[in-house]
Amino acid sequence: MDSLSLDLGLTGVSVVVTGGGGLIGRVVVDHFLAAGAKVSSLDIIHPVDGDFQLDAAQSAFISIHCDVSNEDSVRRAFAVATKAYGPVDICIALASLDLSVLEPSPFADASFSQLNRVLNVNVVGTWLTAREWIRGLREAKLEGRTLRHPNLIIIGSESGHFGERLNAEYSLGKSAVQGGLLMSLRAEVPREYAGARVNVVAPGPVQTDRWYEECGRNPDQYYLEAQATTALAEPIPIRAVAMTILSLASHNFSSHVHGQIVNVDGGKQGKVMWTKEEVAQLEQR
């Protein structure tokens, strides 16, 4: 019997994280760096300074300005990442517009411009990211380059399963990438590079500073979102999301998990449809 190893095997592996400068993205980046990977963080919040900014104190990390909704920007960012660390083995498609930056409204009053903005980032941006990663697989294959952990992880959401009242555009975008896009790439990716994988990680309400700010504005949100329909009765630590991504990215741990949605949501069962106060108002009509 071969000796057992619990090593993720990510030392020196080239990883791209879109949205790597965000509240969740920064933690994901830190976890890959801790595992020994070489990480390119692609984010629109990174400054435009030439092609990239190299962290002199940490040669395993670069930050690259990238607008994932722009085809040329995505192409340039991947080219920089590839030049710095070689073919991109692992791609984490995390960049998206989340609920905190959206204006909630009843569907009849929904903003068409907001719909376009959300879909351009959450759907088009994920599509462009996935395509550029796959093109890198094709190029690596043609050059005879060996990739140890070729896989794409798309970040979905509980909203892609359960919908999002007053923000249908967000759930629409997440359903698209964790539904039709995932199923399409599941069939196609291994044809481009043997053993290449694609999966989705779909978190529930994540314990970011922004989420706690939202709970401060709406005291009922903590209970309604993280307890009322959640078996573990608590929001999701960012570390739990990052560790799931890390283990799923490693072929040593998850070599045959492919085309799956991994829910990191504490056992979420759905959304609360009506609060007691709302039901009381209905009964008074």
Rank of each mutant, 00 (worst) to 15 (best):
V15L: 12
S41Q: 02
A233F: 02
R117G: 02
G163P: 03
N218R: 13
I24Q: 07
W274D: 04
E158F: 09
L182A: 03
R76T: 05
G156Q: 07
G20H: 07
A81M: 03
N199R: 01
P150V: 06
M183E: 13
H149C: 02
A187Y: 09
A130E: 13
H258C: 10
N252G: 02
H258N: 13
N167E: 15
V16Q: 09
E283V: 06
P190H: 11
I24W: 05
S247A: 14
G270W: 08
I45G: 01
D265M: 11
Q260N: 07
G216S: 13
R76Y: 04
E234R: 15
V264C: 13
I238S: 03
D209G: 14
V80F: 03
G195T: 06
A81Y: 04
V206D: 00
R285S: 12
E213Q: 15
R135W: 10
L147I: 03
A168Y: 08
S157K: 09
V29R: 02
D30F: 00
F61R: 08
G36D: 07
E132K: 15
L182W: 10
G267P: 04
L232T: 13
A56N: 00
V264Q: 08
I153W: 01
L4Q: 14
V118M: 08
D51W: 10
S250Q: 07
I238K: 01
A37N: 11
Q207S: 10
Q178I: 01
A228I: 05
N122Y: 03
S63C: 10
E164K: 12
G125N: 12
R138G: 14
S63G: 08
R135N: 14
G22A: 09
I62L: 03
D98Y: 12
R285C: 08
L8D: 09
S59M: 01
I153S: 02
V121N: 10
I64V: 15
D109C: 00
T230G: 04
K276D: 14
Q53A: 04
L166R: 04
V257N: 04
G163Y: 04
H256A: 07
E139L: 14
Q221M: 15
E188L: 15
V88H: 05
W133D: 06
D51T: 12
T129E: 03
A93V: 01
S41M: 03
